[in-house]
Each structure stands twice: as C-alpha cells, then as structure tokens.
C-alpha cells in the first residue's frame, strides 16, 4: 500500500514539475515575443523562414494528398450512410467535417509526425553538439534564437496547411458528391459558401495557433532536455510525440466544447 502511494506521489510530483517547466518555457517565450522589436529581426527571420520551408512548404504535398482522400472518403461514407440526406445539407456537412474538425486535427497529427519529431531531434542534437551552450556563452537567449522562430514557423505553417487542407478537402468532397449524387460543382460551391461563416475561419485560425504553438513548444522542450548521450534522442522524440498528441486532442476537445456551448 505504502509503495503504491509512494509511486503515485512520485508520478504526481513528476507531472507537476512537467507542467511547471512548460509554464516557465511559455512565460519565457511570451517575454521574448514581447521583446521582438528589440531583437535583430533579420537574424530571427532567417531561422523562421527555414522553419516555414521545412514545416510548411515541404509538407504541402502530403497534406494535399491526405486532404483529397479524406475529403472524398469522408463525404462518400456520410452520403452512403445518410441516403435520405437533403442535398442542401451537403454544404454544412463539408464545412463541419473538413473545415472545423478534420482539417485542423489531421494537419496537426501530420505535423507532429513530420515536424515535431524533427524539431525534437534537431534541438536534442543542438544540445549534444554544444550549440545551445555556445549561444548562452555569447548571451544569445536560446528561447529567442531557437524557440521563437520555430514556434512562429510552426504556427504560420500550420495555418497555411489547414487552409490548403480545407480547400483540397472541400474539392475532394465536392467531387464525390458530384459522382455519387450528381450534384454540380456550382451548386456545391454555393452550398459551401452559404454554410461557411466568419466564425468557421476564426475557429480554424484559433486551432492553428493553439496546435502549432503547443506542438512546437513541447517538441523544443523535450529536445532541449537531451543532455549527454545520443541514446536520449529517441526517448525525447517519443515523449514529444506522445505529449503533443495528448495536448492536441485535449485542446481540440476543449475548443469543440466551447464552440457548441457558446
């Protein structure tokens, strides 16, 4: 009994320490973002553009293919399940499935697997290679130079990729609706335009900000905790992926609850 309680206590202490560390990192990040005008934006811009190229541009093919398939398959399943569905509901269905839910969450999962892992590995390697130490020696704050550009790059890329996912997913869904029910593109376009509201855009943008920020901060955090040996790298990556997935699902649930309650 006492052993169980003691391991429970240890687990709680570890969880609290983790939450405290992440809160500290978020505060340091916020301080550096507020100090941005005082920073050398040319230097930070170079790192941010590298991050956008890797996270955003290089992932666009994967997002395009995934969005087209998911848009088409999702609508095909719904249309076949709800055979009596009124045609004017197809726009609402596309907006709800693609824009509000699938676009952000699937883009986030792809970026966790593709860029979050790369970020954790890169920061772990930077730590092992003495790069973070050298930055500190030259009084270059690693949060400003390493984390701020990666968070900015991830959030901007996430936003761009969600928009890409939405457009391609809607086209894929429209294609299937046309093929299965003979609905013309102009009709579907009209239905989607009617169903889309400014709130949908704001909701998507909020998810891009929340998911992008969370994935990049957690990936950087676990990467920077690598200290001594390359064998720590795979552990850091695994922890970054698990924590990011849990956080994204949790945030998605919170936002969905807020959407329907407010």
């Amino acid at each position: 009994m006492s052993r169980t309680l003691s391991s429970l206590g240890r687990a709680i202490r570890r969880a609290l320490a983790f939450v405290g560390n992440i809160a500290n990192l978020e505060l340091a990040l916020a301080r550096q973002v507020l100090r941005l005008p005082g920073h050398n934006l040319r230097v930070l811009g170079r790192v941010t553009s590298l991050q956008i190229r890797f996270t955003g541009l290089q992932a666009s093919t994967l997002i395009t293919i995934t969005a087209a398939v998911i848009g088409a398959v999702g609508i095909m399943e719904f249309v076949s399940l709800l055979t009596g569905l009124a045609d004017d509901l197809i726009g609402k269905l596309l907006v709800t499935i693609i824009v509000r839910e699938m676009g952000p969450i699937i883009t986030a999962v792809i970026l966790i697997g593709r860029s979050g892992t790369a970020m954790a590995t890169e920061l772990g390697s930077m730590s092992l290679n003495g790069e973070l130490e050298a930055l500190r020696a030259y009084r270059i704050d690693p949060v400003a130079f390493v984390i701020v550009p990666r968070v900015a790059g991830m959030v901007l890329s996430m936003f761009g990729l969600i928009v890409l996912f939405d457009v391609v997913g809607l086209l894929g869904g429209a294609g299937i609706a046309f093929a299965l029910r003979g609905l013309s593109f102009s009709l579907i376009q009209g239905r989607v335009a009617d169903a889309l509201t400014n709130a949908d855009f704001a909701y998507s943008a909020l998810k891009a900000l929340a998911f992008g920020q969370t994935i990049s901060v957690l990936s950087c955090y676990f990467g920077m905790r690598v200290r001594r040996s390359p064998t720590e790298l795979p552990q850091a990556v695994t922890k970054a992926v698990v924590a990011s997935l849990m956080a994204v699902v949790f945030i998605d649930g919170l936002l969905a609850a807020a959407w329907y309650l407010l």
């Binding site: 050398n40 930077m126 290679n129 130490e133 050298a134 030259y138 270059i140």
Partner: peptide, 23 residues
C-alpha cells in the same frame, strides 16, 4: 570549445557573424 558549438544550419561565415549581428 574544443568541439561543437557552431550552429549547424548556418554557414561558417554566418556563424562567425551571428553574435555581432544578434547584439
């Protein structure tokens, strides 16, 4: 330092200029 300490996604010239540019 004896090993490491240079930012791997910058060239050597960019590494040399980095602290002077940053500050």
């Amino acid at each position: 330092p004896n090993q490491g300490g240079l930012i791997n996604n910058l060239t050597l010239a960019q590494n040399v200029a980095l602290p002077a540019l940053y500050h």
